[in-house]
Design a protein around this nucleic acid. Structure first.
Lengths: 282, 282
DNA sequence: AGCATCGATACCGCGCGGGTATCGATGCTG
DNA sequence: CAGCATCGATACCCGCGCGGTATCGATGCT
């Protein structure tokens, strides 16, 4: 199977419309129809059920859509990583490290310092991004290494090394009654009608139903907490970055957060290996 | 990048010889040379350093070899899984479950029984194979689900569900002094000159150096233990399958073995989901 | 019934993948 | 050191296959 055929099929399977898919692919509709037929013949499997009005995926088609997307991602990643390796060999292009904005900043600083002191260290571009984007960047080959937080981020498909495990704290307005407590439990927080947990958009950009305010980034969130309209649960290390009006109280029964450094398997880069080794020694 | 180009490159990179690679690919050498040049031009990266006598990989070439192999595997797996999905839709072809020969047989029997009792269960073909082969079969799409044993088998790139964790036991000839002990430690075993741990061949088929006898399968191993020429360390559940002349003693400080059920991500099969759910309930 | 929509079919041209013949560089050998 | 064998690159050619346009046939809407 050629990647061209796969791209064609994925386009049609996503659009469920030959005309639009052809347009998206920058080609005419008839050769696209033919290519899909040919693919079906070669696979010996019907991928699409088509009438002249509707196109739907067959069971096999759904499988090929899921698997094919992953395969195309792998091919594209291979290409990108090769390009980057070539640049790294000739010019001096650095590593790209991706981390969630606002998380693990202390650890990150220590890591960057320690790695910079290593012999043979290359420059490290730090990319800070929103939740859920890191895995994509790493999988697509646009980043070389990532800091992920289990159990929130998926480490599936990556090699990882654990760095630290920490408890979580709840962040409250300084004046709140709970702020004086030595520690709290999840149940203490769940019953606070005045301080609901905020809602983040899911991958589709939609918000789950619930009482909490809708937030889209950490700035909004911090502001809401400072205003006494929400609370949030964070790894302990984030306390350092809080300003005055906020208090942090350990939550005993919240899941512990493990920060891991993750990199794609098959990574052959000495720089990545050095960085990981440095991180493991912290 | 087309899979054809990738296959060409991988062939040349593995052979490090255009002529042989062309032969392996069933084509003439000149078009192969051209294809590689074209690929290098398009990537803007030298992949191979060639003199008229030798061909070597560049840094970028090594990256593309590793990443490209993985990408090709993904493409082939996508094709195979689609074919299998199509067969499953028309005919009634069952699941393929792969497990290590001789391990977890009791668990496996329970799982198969329990799953067979589920409504909508399909037939399950069980493939027993040697160590290290299961991951390959699963990755290549030749199997739908596998029983793996951490920390021995790599679960990288798969979704998994833990089934049981067990201690390990050392298996000795029944008459051996240690056989009477309630439990032992690794140190007790390491110092036995009469009962060395056997050596398994690595992926290349070569044996690591060391004192132990060379074994290639479990039958040989059992025989050697029964003969009093070796001992072996196994998960506790394997005791059930031992015959009379052998004794099993718990090893307190050996790593615990966790049996997990693993399946490829993106799996869209209801049968796999049912089987996993059944396994998790055991 | 007429029409618009949409996938399939028919047909065509050309670009590219693959073939053969040969060159040029390099290292071995007598 | 000359001659030769090896091996990748180049030159040139052919035919298939990919992509294009024109059109058909089926289907659902008005």
């Amino acid at each position: 199977m050629e990647t061209r055929e796969l791209r064609y099929f994925v386009a049609v399977a996503e659009e469920l419309h030959f005309g639009r898919a052809a347009q998206r692919l920058g080609m005419a509709q008839p050769p696209l129809s033919r290519a899909i037929q040919q693919l079906e013949r070669r696979l010996g499997a019907a991928l699409l059920d088509r009438t002249s009005r509707t196109v739907t995926l067959t069971e096999a088609g759904a499988v090929l859509l899921a698997e094919g997307r992953a395969a195309l991602e792998a091919v594209d990643a291979a290409e990108l990583r090769t390009r980057r390796a070539a640049l790294a060999a000739t010019g001096r292009s650095g590593l790209v490290l991706v981390a969630k904005a606002g998380a693990s900043s202390e650890l990150l600083a220590k890591l960057l310092d320690a790695y910079a002191a290593e012999p043979g260290a290359v420059s490290v571009d730090v990319v800070l991004c929103g939740p859920g984007e890191q895995e994509r960047l790493l999988r697509e080959g646009r980043a070389d290494v990532a800091l992920l937080h289990r159990p929130f981020d998926s480490t599936a498909g990556f090699d990882t090394e654990e760095l630290i495990t920490e408890r979580q704290v709840v962040v409250l307005p300084a004046g709140h009654p709970l702020a004086l407590r030595e520690h709290v439990h999840m149940a203490d927080i769940a019953v606070l009608p005045d301080l609901p947990l905020p809602r983040w958009p899911d991958s589709g950009g939609a918000y789950p139903p619930g009482p909490g305010p809708q937030v889209r980034d950490h700035t909004q969130l911090l502001q809401l907490v400072a205003l006494g309209r929400a609370c949030m649960i964070l790894p302990e290390s984030c306390r350092a970055r809080l300003h005055g009006d906020l208090a942090a109280v350990p939550v005993l029964d919240a899941p512990t957060v493990t920060t891991v450094i993750a990199w794609p398997p098959h990574s052959r880069s000495r720089a990545v290996a050095d960085l990981v080794r440095t991180a493991a020694r912290l």
